[in-house]
Design a protein around this nucleic acid. Sequence first.
DNA 1: ATAGAATTGTGAACGTTTTCACAAACTCCC
DNA 2: GGGAGTTTGTGAAAACGTTCACAATTCTAT
Lengths: 213, 213
Amino acid sequence: MAASPQKVSESTVRRLSLYLRFLEEFEEKGVTTVSSEELAGRGGTTAAQVRKDLSIFGSFGKRGLGYAVPLLGREIRRILGLSRSWRVALVGAGRIGAALFEYPNFRTRGFRIVTVLDHDPKKVGRLWDGTRIRHVDTLEETLRETKVDIAILAVPEEVVQDVVDRVVSVEIKAILNFAPTQLRVPNDVVVNDVNMAMELEALSFALVNRALR
Amino acid sequence: MAASPQKVSESTVRRLSLYLRFLEEFEEKGVTTVSSEELAGRGGTTAAQVRKDLSIFGSFGKRGLGYAVPLLGREIRRILGLSRSWRVALVGAGRIGAALFEYPNFRTRGFRIVTVLDHDPKKVGRLWDGTRIRHVDTLEETLRETKVDIAILAVPEEVVQDVVDRVVSVEIKAILNFAPTQLRVPNDVVVNDVNMAMELEALSFALVNRALR
DNA sequence: ATAGAATTGTGAACGTTTTCACAAACTCCC
DNA sequence: GGGAGTTTGTGAAAACGTTCACAATTCTAT
Ligand SMILES: NC(=O)c1ccc[n+]([C@@H]2O[C@H](COP(=O)([O-])OP(=O)(O)OC[C@H]3O[C@@H](n4cnc5c(N)ncnc54)[C@H](O)[C@@H]3O)[C@@H](O)[C@H]2O)c1
Ligand SMILES: NC(=O)c1ccc[n+]([C@@H]2O[C@H](COP(=O)([O-])OP(=O)(O)OC[C@H]3O[C@@H](n4cnc5c(N)ncnc54)[C@H](O)[C@@H]3O)[C@@H](O)[C@H]2O)c1
């Protein structure tokens, strides 16, 4: 029950993330108990799906009642690995990089940007809210020194493969990539892409095929 | 053959987007023909998958040879609706909004930001590279006047549902949402989310469950 | 205590997506 | 022109993910 022996699908993980957000909203409103029905109603899924997702990891509800909001929140946070806080490096202090760095929500959710790296001499050395921007030439030693768990890559697509190779060389196992490039990494490294062009293209497809649905 | 009578899965659309990018790379290198094998090798999929994806829409290859790079590129662009250019509104001229607006890649791929709206009196009236920022109070008339097809929402999560309701009221059918909020829209409206917090949480999950795989 | 109402947890059914495997179609070279 | 070598397009099989349906459990009220 405690461990998760089964294979967990990508979609289940995404939905857990969603449920957690809903639970936080319920908690703010002072709701103490929710049913799978209510949890599903808040977003694009079904009550059965909610129960299946949760049942992979254990049995957190009470039959006839539902789920205790704070408890389920804690459990999902534990499952997702959000009980601890993660040390994050930001490579590329450009437009996207700056937006991410200034966004307070990541820190409150346990992702602390402890390192910022850039290539541009005009940016290197600057102090961003207490964090000194370091030169990307020092990437390997800096990531090791600052004990980084996760790297966010917000560099131009032309250089992103070089950067990722170096990031991988210091045993970083998790990468969030903003460049519209399919990265080549060893298969014990997880890469998640934020590919906005792809999202827009999917919208375009939906628009031209609207009639056919 | 010409039309697409079948149901097309989300993942197929995403992969088409990917193939298009690879084709553009091949085209730049002067490669005239690629096999499904080569197309698959560039990214995380298989040759059979490539062929299945394409076969939904027609038969674009030559047995024994492969696919003609420029032709397949044109076909995928047509399938995705990228032959035309799309008129895009940006709501929220904050950090993310500014990064998106300044990003030249969208325009070159056929997505033109023709309208920028914000709430902040300090921002309204400013000229961003030829585009005047208009007050969000004029959203309905502005979107109609500027014939917008797609809305990008980069506003705080507290107001995003209000904004989306108004966007939907003027018959916009495609939305790219950056707020970490599950939007409620009629079901003829397509919403794609860019949820970075969710991506980070998925990385967190992958890190804590690394051992179990 | 017990009946009645609510809701979970889960095996089984179903549907969708991916992979397999191979005949058909094409190329290339001798 | 024919045979060897490729590679596509696609049914069929396998894997995977979602939905169904219901016994088991808990709560509430009397
Ligand atoms: N801006 C957007 O809206 C947007 C949208 C989609 C995708 N992207 C992608 O995100 C990435 C960043 O985009 P951006 O708009 O922030 O670009 P940007 O040019 O504003 O920033 C890139 C930053 O990376 C730095 N850099 C360049 N080479 C480097 C290296 N080798 N090592 C470290 N830093 C280096 C630059 O000095 C700059 O500060 C790009 O890959 C882009 O394609 C951006
Ligand atoms: N910055 C990031 O890295 C980041 C990361 C993930 C998600 N997001 C999400 O993206 C959205 C925008 O984030 P941001 O960092 O750019 O915020 P921001 O505060 O920098 O920008 C928000 C902009 O929206 C404007 N605005 C406020 N209310 C408005 C309204 N009713 N109508 C129109 N405009 C209005 C503000 O004036 C401001 O210009 C938020 O929902 C945020 O949660 C941001």
